[in-house]
Amino acid sequence: MTVRPDVRLEDMPMRPVRCRRCGVEVLVRKASWEQTSIQWSTPSMTGCAEPPPDRHRTCPSLLESIGLAAAQGDLEVLDG
């Protein structure tokens, strides 16, 4: 089986966002204000300053940084 990219990335790709607390970079895509995709890499995983003990939560500092990037227009929101 070939690994295929998400068809939706043709409309808007993922963009790098830097965490304002620890400086790691992840790839982010926001289809709307309420939707968020986050792609971590091995270096970003090890660089995160406060990985939440509950693995099902997203790092709050990173989420805040993403929200800010979207609000300032640095990160495009497809349906914003």
Partner: peptide, 15 residues
């Protein structure tokens, strides 16, 4: 590959 196992999060907008 690292892509297959790297952490990926997706929160859906249910509005």
């Amino acid at each position: 590959t690292p892509e297959m196992t790297a952490r990926f999060e997706f929160e859906l907008d249910t509005t």
